[in-house]
Amino acid sequence: MIEVKELRRSFGPIVAVDGVSFSVEKGDVLGFLGPNGAGKTTVMRILACFLTPDSGTASVCGYDILKKPVQVRRSLGYLAENAPAYNEMTVGAFLNFVCDARQITGSKRKQSLDRIVPMCAIESVYHQTIETLSKGYQRRVGLAQALIHDPDVLILDEPTDGLDPNQKYEVRKLINKMAKDKSIIVSTHILEEVEAVCSRMIIISRGRILVDSTPEKLKEKYRCSLDEVFRKITRAKVA
């Protein structure tokens, strides 16, 4: 469902993404790992058609990101880093705006909201303005926004960052529940999360893919915990 070919993107002299290729099939949950500044967010932004690559291309659900950016965005749900939202709006008004933009109207809108609000556990803050919410709730509102149209492809940039352990558990449960019939890319720094939700993992550093494997295989190969695997791989290649 996601096909990435030789993506390259630089910002001035800094090469953020340097020839990244991979693909994600239906049912895959791909963990996207790497040190800070590795290029994870840039790849995700390119896939969500927020940035354009300098060269290379990608397709999501068969739509090319350069030729059909609007169709791509229609078929994917994207949660950006820090879950940006319109802070002065109430949660309800915000979700209704997203429905407007995604052309979810009438009874379909009611169904979507009835499904998504309990799913993300935001009933209690539905009428509150977003700026008054805790970080955890803001993140869940972001998640609700990304899931409201039940997309085939989900791209989540650090979805559990800033959540408390209970909320992290809930989000992981949610991802596992949806994994069967979607393609999901999750970026994270938390390695236990990879073990908990991901069926595959890619480690990226300085814009290049270092490893594309599964957590189990990596642990078998290196005979240590994922934490150590991560350190070994990223340090060795950087040095």
Partner: peptide, 14 residues
Amino acid sequence: KVGSIELLLTLPIT
């Protein structure tokens, strides 16, 4: 500044 532009322009809006 707030970053909501990333939300806005990743919705199906040109």
